[in-house]
Design a protein around this nucleic acid. Structure first.
Lengths: 205, 205, 205, 205
DNA sequence: GATGAATGAGTGTTCATTCAT
DNA sequence: GATGAATGAACACTCATTCAT
């Protein structure tokens, strides 16, 4: 059930191969976004990618692999953006809030493609890879906690594993719920503002 | 694709009919929980319900109707339990926390059938009935806010739809994430305690 | 790998069901004979049987099951005919040779459909059911040996599994080879005569 | 479907070419033996042979050609061995039985690779080249008959074409059946002994 | 000559739904 | 009203073969 990292068939080192792989992944993302998961058949993905169905299967062992690869790729991108937000450059102004930047990155994840995000979350869960889902935030959480106690007095004041768990899931949970429900609030400034407030409140323990 | 709200109204008044409908709904819920959405075929549901597939189609126009009806039913039950928690009887002791009772109800929701819950939420979303999903909890939210500011000065000052949305999803999101990830924390007292604390913090705006 | 006896999905007790099953089996046999194994796709079988592909899958769990069922059926029929030949009725004339009758039955086996016979034998082998293939003829072999030594002195002295194997395969092998090579001799009286002589020779050890 | 006899003549005269051809044929034989016919895809053969799939198609017009060439090659080798056994050197001891030597060669054919043998027999039959299958034995049979009547009285005493046909097919048929059924007896000393006995019996008419 | 990325017709199989009994 | 046999569009996936490099 648990798939290895190099789940796909061949390491696409050559430029051409990489372009093909990218075309397939982008096609999958686009169909997911535009027509939903039911329309994302392997044949439809291949057609939109402009490759034969056989070519698709030369790069991915099965349909799941496409979705998982896509999910990991988007998750990695989001994770990087979130972490970048946590470590602002020295010359950043006083009024740059790392938390806001990171939450913004979190919301903007998956290129803002909400339905794609939903479908990929589903795919990861359906394949028993739920833990990968929280990877970007778990990483960021550690940084936050470290930074938060940096110049402070008592280290993890009252911070327990369960508390940390609840806090991170509160933030991610709001975003995930919003994504799953495809709410209209998603992506609005007010939504982001409220999330930032929530995060700050939680940080204060 | 978008179905009208009362798409599935078919008031089976006779007792026998009602028993058949109930059997079908319970069968669906059980399969969803035990074997997942892919196993919940109409034939499997009919078989477990002890009726012919034709009979099933005499009570429900299509498969979606079964899931939607079931979702509404479970949602209503959970909503009632949550609301009941919000309005403690007069003779309840001082130390009864309505929020705690409601959150407990939320955790226990859908008869504890997590997989069924997930599948039904999906069904509702997939059928463009997202608003039904939020209605019960939004209702409860209003009660909480009202109750919370009861003895206070300014009522729900500053409460906006988005803020309410974020607050409710924070709580629900934690529960949903925990369920999905099958964390060991789920169901522990400490988990519930932290959630209650989180909720109280959020209430304080 | 080893399939249970009641490999198929439902015991077709009703006349209609039985007719459908028979139609599917007969269609499979016909395609096998006329166009070879590669043409015997599930869709082609269903089409010739005059049923939908879904109906086919209501009676057989997969393609293999069709071939295995057909093989067993034909094998049973041939086995019965061979065994019947071995046990001539009391009022049969002196000049009725059980061996000849059985060999005749063997040649006529599988309704004379040679290509079907070959494909079904393959199917049984490919499914690890090789022993079923030999059972009927091995059974007949025992009867022959018993009958042959009936009035003699020493019973089946020196008969070993390998010897029995070689003897049965000599007879069956001639028939199979002749069928495969589509020799003009196949079906002639002289061919049968020579086979009977061969068999008698082999019996004498 | 029916291919002409010299369908696959492509005389690769250069040494390098010959090495490539041999590598492909040996790879095919090995996969057939180790993993069965389903695994013997053209891509798999090319990979094991250490050549590109394109190269494979430069030497063989299609997949069938590989199997047929391999079959003919093995058959020719077996035929030579069988014939060599029939003509023992003058200095061979009295107790050298030509029939035993030849039957041994027949059994050892295809380098003892039973599954390969089975698959190649299939390939030949499937391509309407069944008659080639008996070529080694037909050749040997003539020699036997000639030798048998050499110093004898009446030439082919009672030997008719049909009788000869039945006799040769009895021997080949046992081996072929054994190969097709992948019996465990195949290759044992006892199996060979019984076959030799059978052959001697048949020779005696 | 050698290569291997690309191809797509074709396969076995599923399952929501219908309708004659 | 109840039934379940029948349906067939649709899906994921394979592999012999081609051809531009």
């Amino acid at each position: 059930m648990m798939k290895s990292i190099d789940y796909y068939r061949k390491n696409p080192k050559q430029a051409r191969s990489q372009a093909t792989v990218d075309a397939i992944l982008e096609a999958a993302a686009r169909i997911l976004q535009a027509e939903g998961p039911r329309a994302a058949t392997t044949n439809a993905i291949a057609r939109l990618a402009g490759v034969g169905i056989g070519t698709l299967y030369q790069y991915f062992p099965d349909k799941n692999a496409i979705l998982i690869t896509l999910a990991r790729q988007e998750l990695a991108l989001t994770g990087e953006a979130v972490n970048a937000g946590m470590s602002p450059p020295m010359d950043a102004g006083e009024n740059v809030d790392p938390l806001r930047v990171s939450i913004h990155a979190l919301i903007q994840g998956f290129k803002g493609r909400l339905r794609t995000r939903k479908a990929l979350i589903e795919a990861l869960i359906a394949n028993g890879l739920t833990e990968e889902l929280t990877f970007p935030v778990d990483l960021a959480m550690k940084e936050v906690l470290a930074a938060g106690t940096e110049g402070g007095d008592a280290g993890g004041s009252g911070m327990t594993p369960v508390k940390a768990y609840v806090l991170t899931r509160a933030i991610v949970g709001v975003i995930r719920s919003a994504a799953m429900e495809e709410t209209a609030y998603f992506g609005t400034q007010e939504f982001e503002d409220e999330l930032v407030k929530l995060a700050h409140g939680l940080m204060a323990v």
